[in-house]
Simulated assay, not measured.
Amino acid sequence: MKPGVLIIGKVDQNEESFIRFSNLFNIILYNFKSKSLLIHDFNTIYKTTNISALWLSHGEFDLDLYNSLPKDLKCIVLCSIGYDRYDLNLLKKKNIILCNRSNLGSNDVADLTLYHTLSAFRFFPIFEKNLRLYKNTIDSRLIMSIDNDNNSSKSNNKYFALGDQCYSQLVHSPKNKIAGIVGLGQIGKQIAIRLNSLGMSLHYHQRNKLSPSNYSLLIKKFIPTNNNSLPLTYHQDLSSLLKISDIIILALPLNNNSLNLINKDNLSLCKENVKIINISRGKIINEQDVIDFLDQGKIGYLSLDVFHDENNINKRLIFDKKNNQRYNVSLTPHIGSSTYDQVLQSYKLCQDNIIDIVLNDGNGLSPVNA
C-alpha cells in the first residue's frame, strides 16, 4: 500500500512534478473548513488511514490538533517559511519532522521591500492614487502641496506644483540615506543588495557580525564581478542602529527576543520622521505603539506586508484620528513571496522533503526540528 499524503491547500495537480509525485503516494486532497472539523476527521475518517505526511499551505496548530495527528505521521511540510505557530519540541517528541520552505522566495520578498523603500521616500502609491482620482498630472501634484494638518499650501504657486512635496512631508531620493536592516539572513542579504543599487548607506544589526568568509561568499555569489563590494556596517546593539537610520527594515524571524521589538521605547530612539518597513512577522512590532507614533508625526512612513491579525487589520493603520486615510502608510496583503515561480519551487521542495523522509528514511531537505 502506498503511504498517504494529506494535502491541505491548493496544489497544481497537472504540474509535471506533482504527477510523478502522485504515482508514489496515496494523495488525499483535503477541503479545509475548520480546525474542529479537521480534528474530527483525524479521529474518525482518517483514524485507520496510513497518513505519513501532511502538506500544508495554511493552518494553525493547537494542542487538540497535535493530540489528534495520524499515528503513522512522519512529517509536516509547509509551503511557507514561517513556523512560529508550531511547537517544535512537541513534534520532535512525536518523531515528526517539520520542514519549511527554507530560503525559497528570498528574492521575491526583497523585491517587495525595494518597492516599499521607494514608496517610503517617493510616495509613489499616493501619487498614483491621486492621478487615478483627478485624471490629470497637474492637479495630482498640486493637491499634494497642501499640508493636511494646516490646510495650507507650501508651494510658491498655488496653481502649480512640481511633485516634490507630499502633504506635510518633502519627497526625497533614497540615495545616500541610511538603511538599517534588522536581520541579515538570506532575505536581509537580498534586501541589502537591492538597496545598495539605490546608493544607500547600509547598516545592519543581528546577534553576530557577518564573518569574513560569509561576507566573501555573499560577494562571490550575488555581486556582479564589475562591482565586487557591498559596504555593510555592523551594529552589535540595536539601539545604535535605530538612532542613525533614516529607514528601518525588519527582516528577522519571530521569537521571544523579537516579539514586540519595535515598541515605544525603541521607537523613542529613532530619528524624527523615521521610515519603517516590516516584511517579516506582524508581531515583531507593537502595532498600538507604532500607531501612536504615527499620530504624533514621529514616524514619517510605515510599510507593512505582515500584521498582528491578518484576518482583521487594525483600522487605525489605514485611518488617522480624523478618519482620513493615511497617506504615509503603505500596506500589502502578505504577498512578499507570492509569485507563481516561487509557488512551483515550494511545491517541488514539499515533494522532495516528503520523498526523502517517508521513502528514504531521511531528515528532509529543509527540516527545522530534526
Rank of each mutant, 00 (worst) to 15 (best):
I291C: 06
L54I: 07
N312G: 03
F160A: 05
I335V: 15
T44R: 09
R194H: 09
N263Y: 09
T48I: 13
L259Q: 12
N324T: 07
S346W: 00
N156G: 14
T339K: 09
L252K: 00
L365N: 14
K315L: 15
F127S: 01
N208T: 10
S258T: 15
V109L: 01
A370V: 09
S213R: 08
I276M: 05
I318A: 09
G364I: 01
N136T: 09
N214W: 00
L238W: 08
N67Q: 11
D111M: 07
N323D: 15
K47M: 10
A110W: 01
S346Q: 06
N324K: 14
C270S: 11
H235M: 05
R141G: 01
E272G: 11
L261H: 05
Y340E: 15
T332L: 10
D246Y: 13
Y301V: 07
K33Q: 14
A192C: 06
I276A: 03
E310P: 07
G82E: 07
D164L: 12
H235G: 04
L142S: 03
I318C: 04
V368S: 04
S80R: 10
S68F: 05
P224D: 08
L294I: 12
N26S: 15
G183L: 05
L254G: 02
A53W: 01
Q296W: 05
L63M: 12
C99P: 08
P125E: 04
N369S: 09
A120G: 11
D149E: 13
F18Q: 02
L365S: 08
K220W: 07
D320G: 11
D84E: 13
S245D: 12
D341R: 11
I262R: 01
D237G: 03
N14G: 09
S229M: 09
N151R: 07
I76C: 01
K2T: 13
N103K: 07
Q236H: 12
N226G: 06
L184N: 01
I76W: 00
L210Q: 01
S52F: 07
N208V: 02
T339D: 07
L37M: 09
I45L: 12
N256T: 13
E60T: 14
S119M: 08
Q325L: 14
L65K: 00
L269W: 06
R85K: 14
N226W: 14
P125F: 04
G282M: 04
K177D: 08
N273Q: 15
L241Y: 10
I219Y: 03
S216T: 10
N273P: 04
D149L: 12
D111L: 04
S268F: 08
N156F: 15
F307Y: 15
S106Q: 03
I45H: 06
D41I: 02
D265C: 13
K135D: 15
N273C: 04
F18W: 09
H235L: 11
D289T: 03
L317A: 06
K35I: 03
I313S: 08
I299K: 00
L195S: 04
N50I: 08
L302Y: 01
S36F: 04
K71E: 12
T49Y: 08
Y167R: 13
